[in-house]
Design a protein around this nucleic acid. Structure first.
Lengths: 105, 105
DNA sequence: TCTTTATTTCGCAAATTTACGAAATGTTTT
DNA sequence: AAAACATTTCGTAAATTTGCGAAATAAAGA
């Protein structure tokens, strides 16, 4: 129960994690595509599309997955990555709250 | 004019930078306080409040300043840090766009 | 079963981030 | 002018991030 525990709330920490997941252009591009196109993607296609190594892209997908923003389902021999809609909604709420205009003094 | 230049737009890069600035709990706490409380802050006070070294906090402020999210005006012997409202508004738009529900297929 | 295909994990190197105390800067007060 | 104060910059060390190719996994097709 030190100061940090009070001040830096779990929500805030979670949000910082989300922001970190979104803090790389490639990851932001991926997530933005998925959200706006309402589509899913395949690792290999993306690697070629973006022009980055396959292992590199896999790493980015892993981080987005770890942050809960996307999920992959096997569609052999591919893995189909889609937004995790529940967590995406949660992230939306957190960021909406951050940017909310409650400044009506 | 390679692929990356097309795909990873300036807006997207800027947003990734903003996300990076927001990706640390301390920085997120600072910005959130400033936004929600509609207030300003002083480096020393914050360092004590959060429980982090003064030089460390100065570094975080520097990064927020670099990202354009805050600005400091001299109020000797202090420096008063406030949100940069214009850029904050810009950031809001970028993130609102990211999370916009245009998924009505 | 063996080969091909899609993806991930591993190992590694370069770059960046984080945090701190000490020293430097600049201002106020004595 | 000197002491006190708020803040930043510097130097440094530990941890993390980034990107890649090579090797490992796992499943599909011949």
């Amino acid at each position: 129960m030190d100061k940090k525990t009070e001040l830096i709330s779990p929500d805030l920490k979670e949000m910082a994690q989300l922001a970190k997941a979104l803090s790389h252009p490639v990851r932001l591009y991926i997530v933005m595509s998925l959200a706006h196109m309402n589509s899913c993607c395949y690792s290999g296609d993306l690697a070629e599309e973006i022009g980055v190594g396959r292992s590199t892209l896999s790493q980015h997908l892993k981080e987005l997955k770890f942050a809960g923003l996307i999920q992959g389902e096997i569609e052999a021999p591919y893995i189909r990555y889609c937004l995790n809609r529940d967590n995406w909604q949660k992230a939306r709420q957190l960021f909406n709250n951050l940017f909310a205009e409650k400044n009506n003094l």
